[in-house]
Amino acid sequence: MNLFRLLGDLSHLASILVLLHKIQTSRSCRGISFKTQALYVAVFVARYLDLFWRYISLYNSAMKVFFIGSSCYILYLMKYRYRPTNDPSIDTFRIEYLLVPCAILSLIFNYNFMPTEILWSFSIFLESVAILPQLFMLQRTGEAEAITTHYLAALGIYRALYIPNWIYRYFTEGVIDPIAVTAGIVQTGLYLDFFYVYFTKVLQGQKFELPA
């Protein structure tokens, strides 16, 4: 564990708390992509079920339980409690275009051709693109509530911080994980446009609006 990874994980944790706060206080999931949230459930279940056979630390297990639990809870909120505020007609990204390529990539690129390792690779690839339905929805509506952009910023910062973590681990432990690093760089890259608008507009007190 190093500071980059810890801050990254805390940013990830914060992003989910911000999202829950947004949904609970506004009693609405407007502006949130159900598809992205469903993909995160798939990511967490595929990767974190290893907590049943691989113990790393109490911190690691507790975070895994939290991420699986909170992501399922968010789906429940969107699908049941605040269902009327969820508008599927603007959440139109075709997720099979993500699921199928990720499944194929995980069969080719993995560290061992066994179900648990293929699932691990699949979750890494899927996580890197799971935000696309959300970004696509943002692009379509052209604007977002400030709190939704804080959620996205925290989520993006989480992955961005994993990059210095890998650089640090390369120099201190001599290890490099090509699958995680490649997917992580792609994932962070997807946020660059969003970050630009977030830092130049939202943090300056302006509304999040995309140029037409």
Binding site: R5, K64, F67, Y111, R169, V175, I176, D177, A180
Partner: peptide
């Protein structure tokens, strides 16, 4: 063990 360091990451 798989030759991956990231299995201890979240």
């Amino acid at each position: 063990a798989p030759p991956s360091s990231s299995h201890d990451e979240l």
